[in-house]
Amino acid sequence: MKILRNGKIWAFVLPSLIGVTLFFFIPAAASLFYAFTDAGGRFIWFANFADIITNPVFQLATRNSLWFIAISVPLNMIISFLLAMLLQNLKHRKIFAVIFMLPLVIPSGSIVFFWNTLFADNGAINGLLLRMGAETVPWFTTNWSFAIIIMVFLFKNIGFNMVLFMAGLSLIPKDYYEAAKIEGAKSFATFRHITFIYIMPTSFLVLMMSIINSFRIFREIYLLYGPYPHQSVYMLQHFMNNQFLFANMQRLSVTAILLSAATIVLVIAVFRGQRKISDTFS
């Protein structure tokens, strides 16, 4: 009876599981085969991995992607959280929330013309600089291109994440704060023991979405700078895109496997960290 009931429950998961098995698990296993063989199908151990890891272009792309995530994700979370704290009890919150979330849904293809008009070599900002008597800046062909992408990412995500944090903050029961006040808790203590703890589930969600979106910003990078951008914004996705061009399954598989392994490590670290934080503070 119990098994039957359990079996019925799995029937709900089945459609999704079939799809994921078909389009992910099975072909991912196939990509393992590519990763350990050469183009002729001969087993060559880790030669493909060694080839990729020592590839300077792959190293550059990995470094850039890591830097991008390491800078953009925390920056995004900190700024949107601070803004949410600041605007917590805002009047007309609903209307502002709509406006703040707007950048998230604007398609990349539409928005790039705006950024291009601003930052191109003959763009509006350089025109303005020149008129003010300053030198023009080649935004797209120097390290500035990295800073611009960080800004584009923040522009797209801060509003939405801020609204999520605001929603999360409004869920914390007001009596907690009142009780803390009565007990004479300092505002930092209140923050540490109430706000910080109860915003954790929201932070976890925002963190996940930030990581996903930090990869998705590749579309803006690609549409703005093309397939061979300045070396500071050459990402893992550029590297993989160019391998798709040659349908180099060995390299593609190895890169995808390395990325998956890195993601597994990251997720385990996040889960452990989350548990540790809620253990220490609560």
């Binding site: 099975i26 196939a30 990509s31 598989s253 890169t255 990325l259």
Partner: peptide, 10 residues
Amino acid sequence: LLPMQALLVP
């Protein structure tokens, strides 16, 4: 969490 390019391989 994987970037689209990694998913595109499978």
